[in-house]
Amino acid sequence: MDNNALIRRIIRSKETYMLILPGVIWFVIFAYIPMYGLTLAFKTYKANLGIFGSPWVGLEKFEYVFRDPAFMESVWRTLWINLGRIVFTFPVPILLALLLNELRLQWYKKTVQTIFTFPYFLSWIIVASVLINFLDMQGLVNGVIRLLGGEPINFLGNTTLFRPLLYLTDIWKNAGWTMIIYLAAITSIDTEQYESAQLDGATRLQTMWYITLPGIMNTVVVMLILAAGNIMTAGFDQIFNISNAATAKAGEILDIYIYRITFQSAADFSFSTAVSLFRSVINFVLLLLADRICKMLGSEGLFPPIRRTARKGRAILRAGGA
């Protein structure tokens, strides 16, 4: 196509561009300029010169970052806490979906599903308020323990119980919603497989293990890769609201560290940006790495399933007409 034809097509589409324009402006100002703002990691921020005008200093800030012991500690802490999430909380929604799928009372299934998904729609501030009330020294759980003659346990102010607390509250809030994703994946398993299993006399536990679970493996892998890509960031809202003075140190993940050095002490914005850039790069590298590893292990990795789900979604929308 020559240039003139292109220009003619652009002019013909001008109304389409007008529709897109407000959104594009928003993205440029509030997504792309902040993205460009990450260059502050290589600059010294001067308030009077702004993001664009501040002078470049190269990698100097990163040298300071890596010299801060609190930084390295929070990096390792983040890694351990969020690896723990993958080990302890990641499998729970899969298990729940498998259990719920075996349930034959439809009304019961619906009710349970509704109850499980509700906490997901609340903010961590509300969830933390509810669970703090439930678990603190005067709370219901310790009430039961006292009634049974035990010593009350300080669930919230105890550093050794802090990680289990994080995993359990994470499950409490989010497992129900993630379960929905797996339930949706289960619907797309070919029913013929179940029928032939039935003919072969397989028990329900066997079908669950040999048909349902392999049937949702692709979704599991996608979720796993996404979780890997989130390892340096998961949990700010949760920890910010569930930790307290006694557990603050045990919960200082990288994002909390960034928040603390930026908004609570004398801020060096370039330093903080360097930390947050480091964090994003690690996340991205881990995402690609997990994708690569899954591909080596014979799975199709992250991108084809996403494309397929999008296609399927479109097909269902078309058929249903909503």
Partner: peptide
């Protein structure tokens, strides 16, 4: 692209 990368809170605050 904006789904995969974002500037984070500090550039946003300065903006």
């Amino acid at each position: 692209v904006t789904m995969m990368f974002n500037g984070g809170i500090i550039p946003m605050y300065l903006l």
